[in-house]
Design a protein around this nucleic acid. Sequence first.
RNA 1: GCGCGGUUAGCUCAGUGGUAGAGCACUACCUUGACACGGUAGGGGUCAGAGGUUCGAAACCUCUACCGCGCACCA
Length: 875
Amino acid sequence: MAELSKTYDPKTVEPKWYQRWIDDHNFEADANSKKKPFSIVMPPPNITGVLTLGHVLNNSIQDILARRARMVGFEVLWLPGMDHAGIGTQTAVEKWLRKNEGVTRHDLGRETFLQRVLEWQDKHGGIIIQQLKRLGCSCDWTRQRYTMDEDYARAVAEVFVDLYEKGLIYRGRRMINWDPAAQTALSDEEVISKPQSGNLYYVRYEIVDEPGNFLEVATTRPETIMADTGVAVHPKDKRYTKLVGKDVWRPMPREKIPVVADDAIDPEFGTGILKVTPAHDKLDFEIGQRHKMAVIDVLTPDGKINCPAVPELDGLDRFDARSRAAELLDARGLLAKAEPYQNNVGFSDRSDVPVEPRLSEQWFLKYPKTKEALVVVKKHLIRFFPRHWEKVYEQWIKNIQDWCISRQVWWGHRIPAWYAKSQIPKTKPQIYVGLKPPKDPENWIQDNDTLDTWFSSWLWAYETMDLKTRKKFYPTSTLVTGPDIIFFWVARMIFAGLEFKPGKTTKTEDNIPFHDVFFTSIIRDKQGRKMSKSLGNSPDPLDLIDKYGADGLRFGLMRIAPSGQDIRFDEKQIEEGRNFATKLWNVARFRQMHGPSEAAPKLEKLSIYAIELLARLNETIDAVEKGYREYEFNTIGQRLYDFIWNDYCDWFVETAKTEIFSADESSKKSALAVMDYVLSAIVRLLHPFMPHITEELWSLLGLGDGSIQFAPLPKKIALKGVDLTKRNLVAAIYETVQAGRNLRALARVPSNQKAKFALRSKEEELSAEQGTIARLLSASELVINPSFQAGAGTPIATTALGEILLIVDVDLSAERDRLDKEIAKVEADLRIVESKLNNKSFVDRAPRDVVELNRQRQETYTEQLRLLKQAREKL
RNA sequence: GCGCGGUUAGCUCAGUGGUAGAGCACUACCUUGACACGGUAGGGGUCAGAGGUUCGAAACCUCUACCGCGCACCA
């Protein structure tokens, strides 16, 4: 047995064990195992990503679940991998190329560019995997997957072809969200609306029949006036009914456009007249369709004005054009007014620029199995933790729209669709969709677009597994993810599972992708702001690991992570995690100083303190068990922290010193055996949270054979034949000790000075505990005598055990004040209890034990009051 | 507008019907034979507000205010 060093050094211990676990293949899942399966697929981080605190939280939880499951006896698969992040990676590589080589992807061409992405990826990608290893993640790295793996990519294409053949995927010209920065279409989920302050411009449109008469139209986007092909009013709006059917002059370029009536108009907004710009607004497009209006597109893909008819604006950026358009209108007397106005604008999640609604030819998916997906969650075949996310999920599914799945980026899964070269313009194009190129490739051109990255991620729960693995481990047990991707990923994986049925049978319960979903918290900074690079408020987890150890970081974070709420991150909390690791280390060191530990200690001649400790351990095991059932990791962490620090270190170990330092070998042995038993339980309970230090202690103390990772979890000890009423005595002793210490502090006896105490108690068994109580009080002498006579002014406190007195000369008036205060407090408590007991309704209706508790309190307080008053009179 | 959370000690958060809790921070004492990343003791809260249910409400119900999030609208 190696000796424990004076301080715990995570920097050497953590990498040492991680390497050992890898070398021993401890994380590898055996698909042939007879054990029951437990599986998790890791939400794949982006290949460009670096570890954030969010990842730390997320993956710590997954690791905790995986490690716990191994100890319970499951065959565990935690399947890691990465995501190719189409838009994100392409943008990152383009940026790098521009900076380092001064070229764009168009300069290179598609094939060369993709080659460069692969090179870049090998060099700079996947850092996060190494970082996850430093955290201690017990993933099966032999099964690591990537969404661009050959097999995986083939599966994505197969799914596309399948859904196309089922008629669920179709190509169509529709209004989509266009990201002018990334120059691609986006799904609705990738658009976030943000409040923006701008102006509401009131623009004058002259009525054709009535020269000199104008309509006023309120708009936030004067730069799109050139694309107006009508104005619209509400059919019941009496102010304008006579105008419906007439024409007005579009201000620029000057052209006749019709006035139509449409129910979609809100008469209350602005002037009640809407300029209809079908090419650049979703609602306008629908109105345009209803009234057969023309569609004029005046924006280029990168968000510039394309309108040679108005040369002043042509070629300008859309935001420059906005103010310029207002100036132009004003100069022509066509701007009635402009008022400051705040509205919501859709931003691209990725590029953080306003999205343009745009009419475009794209691929869409009509979601399969939406009803079924709702049912499996409502019926709790899939359980959400916390439950309230069910409602969010339901709301989304009920309002679901077809998914725009094509992206105008090169990096990703290319759409397996080809168009006939010989097609005559304006006729329906001939489309070929298949896994292999058409037989006569010279006559076809493949679609340039790739698929939305999420269109590959939605297969992640099973396409990452080979058939044998799938048979053993699908459906997965638990998905751990952030609530921010509930639509992007969670819901879509459910659709995919139900639609493609990868399970062993066609039954629904064999095909859902997971049984439980745990939604983690979102980590914010102290001020409640989201962590972001630009704010610089996001600490680097690797720095935190260097400072506090991976175990410290994990524990600190887990203990403050309430389920389903945001976390306010404070480094102090991680420091606590580190301190806790040190505490554990030292209390183990204390044990080791008194000889080797036993892996199977015999629990004999239990002291009353040991009984209390073991009873508390049982309670802790129950609480931890319950915590896991309900995914309340902060509760588990807190319970273990309290048990170890308070029950074990502060109380038990301090009492046990009496036996350990005594000459009685058998009682010393007994105390050490209890320590071994409880330490063994502690490190096993704690192992999922703090894998490295617990493995180190398991090994150094020799608490069991082999790795702690596969040690069975501690079971509750049967305390048969043990007198549990002794717990009351222990509680009374601890209370008395605290009261005695309090007297010391009030009498200003310095901590390093021993003091004489007396205890007036009728408790018979107390003499055996005299030494321990004296130790806890740091007493030079402890007299136990029910009729101890003390001089006037002796500080006194009453407890369940009797009266504790501090034998010391003291200022009488101070002691008088103190007693008066204490008497007042006890009197107040007694009053509360008596008012209850005098209340007939309370006595009749409250549960018996509650009434009984109050009766006992009444007795105790009355007795305390009597003794205190007696003491007070003597002064 | 609809929906979901939240509001408890200076800070971060537990507490779901029976006399308000933890950690940090703060104050005092202490380097005593595991640990100063420590020990002991202490101060500090009309549990956002109002009403209701109840013998009893921080907890359950209703309303209000404020904070956060999602969806819809967003001319």
